[in-house]
Protein backbone atom coordinates (compact mmCIF):
# COMPACT_ATOMS: atom_id res chain seq x y z
CA UNK A 1 0.00 0.00 0.00
CA UNK A 2 2.69 2.43 1.00
CA UNK A 3 4.88 1.53 -1.97
CA UNK A 4 1.92 2.08 -4.19
CA UNK A 5 1.31 5.55 -2.76
CA UNK A 6 4.98 6.26 -3.16
CA UNK A 7 4.82 5.41 -6.86
CA UNK A 8 1.68 7.52 -7.28
CA UNK A 9 3.34 10.40 -5.46
CA UNK A 10 6.48 10.29 -7.56
CA UNK A 11 4.49 10.12 -10.74
CA UNK A 12 2.30 13.07 -9.77
CA UNK A 13 5.38 14.87 -8.49
CA UNK A 14 7.12 14.37 -11.81
CA UNK A 15 4.31 16.32 -13.46
CA UNK A 16 4.68 19.12 -10.94
CA UNK A 17 8.41 19.00 -11.60
CA UNK A 18 7.80 19.58 -15.31
CA UNK A 19 5.56 22.54 -14.58
CA UNK A 20 8.02 23.89 -12.04
CA UNK A 21 10.98 23.67 -14.42
CA UNK A 22 9.00 25.59 -17.04
CA UNK A 23 8.28 28.21 -14.42
CA UNK A 24 11.91 28.32 -13.31
CA UNK A 25 13.52 28.80 -16.74
CA UNK A 26 11.41 31.91 -17.29
CA UNK A 27 12.21 33.16 -13.81
CA UNK A 28 15.90 32.70 -14.55
CA UNK A 29 15.75 34.75 -17.72
CA UNK A 30 13.48 37.61 -16.71
CA UNK A 31 13.46 37.43 -12.93
CA UNK A 32 9.67 37.36 -12.88
CA UNK A 33 7.23 34.83 -11.47
CA UNK A 34 5.36 34.04 -14.64
CA UNK A 35 1.78 33.13 -13.83
CA UNK A 36 0.83 33.10 -17.50
CA UNK A 37 2.42 29.65 -17.34
CA UNK A 38 -0.94 28.58 -15.88
CA UNK A 39 -2.63 29.51 -19.16
CA UNK A 40 -0.41 27.10 -21.07
CA UNK A 41 -1.19 24.33 -18.57
CA UNK A 42 -4.93 24.79 -19.03
CA UNK A 43 -4.56 25.07 -22.80
CA UNK A 44 -2.46 21.90 -22.85
CA UNK A 45 -5.40 20.03 -21.37
CA UNK A 46 -8.20 21.78 -23.26
CA UNK A 47 -6.67 21.71 -26.72
CA UNK A 48 -6.13 17.97 -26.37
CA UNK A 49 -9.73 17.62 -25.28
CA UNK A 50 -11.13 19.79 -28.07
CA UNK A 51 -9.02 18.15 -30.77
CA UNK A 52 -9.90 14.63 -29.68
CA UNK A 53 -13.56 15.32 -29.02
CA UNK A 54 -14.60 17.69 -31.79
CA UNK A 55 -12.12 16.82 -34.53
CA UNK A 56 -12.07 13.18 -33.47
CA UNK A 57 -8.33 12.96 -33.76
CA UNK A 58 -6.61 10.13 -31.91
CA UNK A 59 -5.93 11.19 -28.33
CA UNK A 60 -2.16 10.72 -28.63
CA UNK A 61 -2.02 12.94 -31.71
CA UNK A 62 -4.30 15.48 -30.03
CA UNK A 63 -1.94 15.64 -27.08
CA UNK A 64 1.12 16.19 -29.26
CA UNK A 65 -0.66 18.95 -31.18
CA UNK A 66 -1.95 20.43 -27.96
CA UNK A 67 1.52 20.57 -26.42
CA UNK A 68 2.76 22.32 -29.57
CA UNK A 69 -0.08 24.83 -29.36
CA UNK A 70 0.68 25.48 -25.68
CA UNK A 71 4.32 26.19 -26.54
CA UNK A 72 3.40 28.57 -29.34
CA UNK A 73 0.79 30.35 -27.23
CA UNK A 74 3.38 30.81 -24.49
CA UNK A 75 5.79 32.43 -26.94
CA UNK A 76 2.92 34.52 -28.33
CA UNK A 77 1.93 35.71 -24.85
CA UNK A 78 5.49 36.86 -24.31
CA UNK A 79 5.53 38.61 -27.66
CA UNK A 80 2.30 40.57 -27.29
CA UNK A 81 2.33 41.36 -23.58
CA UNK A 82 5.78 41.17 -22.00
CA UNK A 83 7.88 42.16 -25.01
CA UNK A 84 6.34 45.66 -25.36
CA UNK A 85 6.80 46.24 -21.62
CA UNK A 86 10.43 45.18 -21.87
CA UNK A 87 11.05 47.52 -24.80
CA UNK A 88 9.71 50.41 -22.78
CA UNK A 89 11.88 49.43 -19.85
CA UNK A 90 8.96 49.10 -17.44
CA UNK A 91 9.63 47.88 -13.90
CA UNK A 92 9.25 44.19 -13.20
CA UNK A 93 6.04 44.53 -11.24
CA UNK A 94 4.36 45.34 -14.59
CA UNK A 95 5.51 41.99 -16.01
CA UNK A 96 4.10 40.24 -13.00
CA UNK A 97 0.74 41.97 -13.34
CA UNK A 98 0.65 41.37 -17.09
CA UNK A 99 1.36 37.66 -16.72
CA UNK A 100 -1.24 37.27 -13.97
CA UNK A 101 -3.79 39.12 -16.11
CA UNK A 102 -3.12 36.92 -19.12
CA UNK A 103 -3.55 33.85 -16.95
CA UNK A 104 -6.94 35.07 -15.72
CA UNK A 105 -8.00 36.13 -19.18
CA UNK A 106 -7.24 32.73 -20.70
CA UNK A 107 -8.98 30.96 -17.83
CA UNK A 108 -12.03 33.19 -18.32
CA UNK A 109 -12.10 32.41 -22.04
CA UNK A 110 -11.85 28.69 -21.32
CA UNK A 111 -14.68 28.89 -18.80
CA UNK A 112 -16.82 30.68 -21.38
CA UNK A 113 -16.06 28.27 -24.21
CA UNK A 114 -16.35 25.12 -22.13
CA UNK A 115 -19.39 26.43 -20.25
CA UNK A 116 -17.48 25.67 -17.05
CA UNK A 117 -18.06 21.95 -17.46
CA UNK A 118 -15.75 19.36 -16.01
CA UNK A 119 -15.05 16.87 -18.77
CA UNK A 120 -12.62 14.12 -19.59
CA UNK A 121 -10.82 12.76 -22.60
CA UNK A 122 -12.29 9.97 -24.69
CA UNK A 123 -11.30 6.77 -22.90
CA UNK A 124 -8.87 5.55 -25.51
CA UNK A 125 -5.60 6.20 -23.75
CA UNK A 126 -3.95 3.53 -21.70
CA UNK A 127 -6.12 3.49 -18.69
CA UNK A 128 -5.95 0.29 -16.62
CA UNK A 129 -3.04 -0.74 -14.49
CA UNK A 130 0.00 -2.90 -14.04
CA UNK A 131 0.19 -5.31 -11.13
CA UNK A 132 3.52 -6.29 -9.62
CA UNK A 133 3.44 -8.49 -6.49
CA UNK A 134 0.74 -6.66 -4.50
CA UNK A 135 1.48 -3.23 -5.87
CA UNK A 136 -0.99 -1.92 -8.40
CA UNK A 137 0.23 0.97 -10.52
CA UNK A 138 -2.00 2.70 -13.03
CA UNK A 139 -0.44 2.61 -16.49
CA UNK A 140 -1.10 6.32 -16.78
CA UNK A 141 1.18 6.97 -13.79
CA UNK A 142 3.99 5.04 -15.44
CA UNK A 143 3.41 6.96 -18.64
CA UNK A 144 3.47 10.29 -16.81
CA UNK A 145 6.71 9.48 -15.07
CA UNK A 146 8.30 8.24 -18.30
CA UNK A 147 7.26 11.31 -20.27
CA UNK A 148 8.42 13.62 -17.49
CA UNK A 149 11.86 12.01 -17.40
CA UNK A 150 12.17 12.12 -21.19
CA UNK A 151 11.05 15.75 -21.33
CA UNK A 152 13.55 16.80 -18.70
CA UNK A 153 16.33 14.93 -20.50
CA UNK A 154 15.35 16.64 -23.73
CA UNK A 155 15.34 20.02 -22.02
CA UNK A 156 18.75 19.46 -20.55
CA UNK A 157 20.04 18.41 -23.97
CA UNK A 158 18.72 21.68 -25.39
CA UNK A 159 20.21 23.74 -22.58
CA UNK A 160 23.60 22.06 -22.47
CA UNK A 161 24.23 20.87 -26.03
CA UNK A 162 22.86 23.53 -28.35
CA UNK A 163 23.74 27.05 -29.34
CA UNK A 164 20.41 28.48 -28.23
CA UNK A 165 20.74 26.59 -24.94
CA UNK A 166 24.10 28.22 -24.31
CA UNK A 167 22.53 31.58 -25.11
CA UNK A 168 19.71 30.90 -22.64
CA UNK A 169 22.20 30.09 -19.90
CA UNK A 170 24.20 33.22 -20.68
CA UNK A 171 21.11 35.44 -20.58
CA UNK A 172 20.03 33.80 -17.33
CA UNK A 173 23.26 34.84 -15.73
CA UNK A 174 23.75 38.31 -17.18
CA UNK A 175 21.61 39.42 -20.06
CA UNK A 176 23.59 42.59 -20.80
CA UNK A 177 26.85 40.67 -20.99
CA UNK A 178 25.05 38.16 -23.21
CA UNK A 179 24.07 40.96 -25.59
CA UNK A 180 27.72 41.92 -25.81
CA UNK A 181 28.38 38.39 -27.12
CA UNK A 182 26.02 39.15 -29.99
CA UNK A 183 23.14 37.21 -28.46
CA UNK A 184 19.73 38.60 -29.38
CA UNK A 185 17.79 38.70 -26.11
CA UNK A 186 14.38 38.74 -27.84
CA UNK A 187 15.14 35.47 -29.56
CA UNK A 188 16.39 33.89 -26.35
CA UNK A 189 13.43 35.04 -24.27
CA UNK A 190 10.98 33.91 -26.96
CA UNK A 191 12.61 30.48 -27.10
CA UNK A 192 12.55 30.21 -23.32
CA UNK A 193 8.82 30.91 -23.26
CA UNK A 194 8.34 28.36 -26.03
CA UNK A 195 10.17 25.72 -23.98
CA UNK A 196 8.27 26.65 -20.83
CA UNK A 197 4.99 26.46 -22.74
CA UNK A 198 5.85 23.01 -24.09
CA UNK A 199 6.55 21.79 -20.55
CA UNK A 200 3.35 23.40 -19.29
CA UNK A 201 1.41 21.84 -22.15
CA UNK A 202 2.76 18.37 -21.44
CA UNK A 203 1.93 18.73 -17.76
CA UNK A 204 -1.54 20.07 -18.51
CA UNK A 205 -2.39 17.38 -21.06
CA UNK A 206 -1.33 14.54 -18.75
CA UNK A 207 -2.82 16.00 -15.58
CA UNK A 208 -6.02 16.42 -17.56
CA UNK A 209 -5.87 12.70 -18.27
CA UNK A 210 -5.16 11.80 -14.67
CA UNK A 211 -7.83 13.98 -13.07
CA UNK A 212 -10.25 15.64 -15.41
CA UNK A 213 -10.28 18.51 -17.84
CA UNK A 214 -11.60 21.54 -16.00
CA UNK A 215 -11.06 25.27 -16.44
CA UNK A 216 -9.15 25.77 -13.19
CA UNK A 217 -6.52 23.23 -14.15
CA UNK A 218 -4.28 26.24 -14.77
CA UNK A 219 -4.18 26.77 -11.01
CA UNK A 220 -1.56 24.03 -11.01
CA UNK A 221 0.78 26.94 -11.72
CA UNK A 222 0.67 27.75 -8.00
CA UNK A 223 2.05 24.30 -7.26
CA UNK A 224 4.78 24.96 -9.81
CA UNK A 225 5.52 28.25 -8.09
CA UNK A 226 5.67 26.61 -4.67
CA UNK A 227 7.84 23.80 -6.00
CA UNK A 228 10.28 26.43 -7.26
CA UNK A 229 10.21 28.33 -3.99
CA UNK A 230 10.84 25.21 -1.95
CA UNK A 231 13.57 24.01 -4.27
CA UNK A 232 15.19 27.43 -4.43
CA UNK A 233 13.93 29.93 -7.02
CA UNK A 234 16.12 29.80 -10.07
CA UNK A 235 17.49 26.32 -9.55
CA UNK A 236 16.23 23.76 -12.07
CA UNK A 237 17.26 20.77 -9.95
CA UNK A 238 15.60 22.50 -7.02
CA UNK A 239 12.41 22.85 -9.06
CA UNK A 240 12.42 19.14 -9.90
CA UNK A 241 13.01 18.27 -6.29
CA UNK A 242 10.30 20.65 -5.08
CA UNK A 243 7.85 19.19 -7.59
CA UNK A 244 8.51 15.64 -6.44
CA UNK A 245 8.21 16.70 -2.81
CA UNK A 246 4.83 18.35 -3.32
CA UNK A 247 3.57 15.34 -5.28
CA UNK A 248 4.62 13.00 -2.49
CA UNK A 249 3.22 15.04 0.37
CA UNK A 250 -0.03 15.51 -1.48
CA UNK A 251 -0.48 11.84 -2.36
CA UNK A 252 0.49 10.52 1.03
CA UNK A 253 -1.60 12.95 3.06
CA UNK A 254 -4.40 12.23 0.65
CA UNK A 255 -4.14 8.49 1.26
CA UNK A 256 -3.48 8.40 4.98
CA UNK A 257 -5.20 11.45 6.36
CA UNK A 258 -7.95 12.98 4.35
CA UNK A 259 -8.35 14.14 0.76
CA UNK A 260 -10.12 17.31 1.82
CA UNK A 261 -7.35 18.48 4.09
CA UNK A 262 -4.48 17.34 1.85
CA UNK A 263 -3.89 20.75 0.19
CA UNK A 264 -3.81 22.44 3.59
CA UNK A 265 -1.25 19.95 4.83
CA UNK A 266 0.83 20.31 1.69
CA UNK A 267 0.96 24.09 1.76
CA UNK A 268 1.38 24.11 5.54
CA UNK A 269 4.47 21.94 5.26
CA UNK A 270 5.81 24.13 2.49
CA UNK A 271 5.43 27.20 4.67
CA UNK A 272 7.36 25.43 7.42
CA UNK A 273 10.15 24.54 4.97
CA UNK A 274 10.35 28.12 3.80
CA UNK A 275 10.50 29.41 7.36
CA UNK A 276 13.42 27.12 8.09
CA UNK A 277 15.17 27.63 4.75
CA UNK A 278 13.96 30.83 3.11
CA UNK A 279 16.41 30.38 0.25
CA UNK A 280 14.86 27.00 -0.58
CA UNK A 281 16.34 23.55 -0.32
CA UNK A 282 18.83 23.96 -3.15
CA UNK A 283 19.09 27.69 -2.48
CA UNK A 284 21.91 29.32 -4.38
CA UNK A 285 24.91 30.58 -2.50
CA UNK A 286 26.55 33.81 -3.51
CA UNK A 287 28.84 32.84 -6.35
CA UNK A 288 30.44 36.05 -7.42
CA UNK A 289 33.54 36.95 -5.51
CA UNK A 290 34.60 40.54 -5.36
Amino acid sequence: MFVQQLVNGISLGSMYALLAVGFAIVYNILGIVNFSHGATIALGAYCAYWLSTYLRLPLELSMVLSVTIAGLVSALIERITLHPLRRKGQPQIFFFIASLTVFNLVTAIIIYVSKANITSYPRTLIYGSIRMANVIVPKLDVLMLGIAVLSLLALSAVLYKTKIGLAIRCCSYDSRAAQLMGINPDLVIGTTFLLAGLLGGIGGALLGAKYAVYPELGDMVYRAFFACMVGGLGSLTGAIFGGLLIGLIETISNAYINAAISPAITFGLLVVILLVRPQGIAGKLVEDKI
Binding site: S172, L180, D288
Partner: peptide, 27 residues
Protein backbone atom coordinates in the same frame (compact mmCIF):
# COMPACT_ATOMS: atom_id res chain seq x y z
CA UNK B 1 32.93 43.92 -29.57
CA UNK B 2 32.77 45.42 -26.09
CA UNK B 3 34.86 43.69 -23.43
CA UNK B 4 33.05 44.58 -20.23
CA UNK B 5 35.12 44.81 -17.10
CA UNK B 6 36.27 41.49 -15.72
CA UNK B 7 33.51 40.44 -13.42
CA UNK B 8 30.99 40.20 -16.20
CA UNK B 9 32.08 36.78 -17.28
CA UNK B 10 29.46 34.04 -17.00
CA UNK B 11 30.45 32.57 -13.64
CA UNK B 12 27.84 29.80 -13.99
CA UNK B 13 29.46 28.48 -17.17
CA UNK B 14 32.78 26.75 -17.66
CA UNK B 15 35.70 28.60 -19.18
CA UNK B 16 35.15 26.67 -22.40
CA UNK B 17 31.45 27.54 -22.47
CA UNK B 18 32.28 31.20 -21.90
CA UNK B 19 34.52 31.10 -24.96
CA UNK B 20 31.79 29.37 -26.95
CA UNK B 21 29.37 32.11 -25.92
CA UNK B 22 31.86 34.56 -27.39
CA UNK B 23 31.72 32.61 -30.63
CA UNK B 24 27.93 33.01 -30.82
CA UNK B 25 28.06 35.17 -33.95
CA UNK B 26 30.71 32.98 -35.64
CA UNK B 27 29.19 29.57 -35.10
Amino acid sequence: VHVPEGRRIFANLTVYENLMAGAYTKW
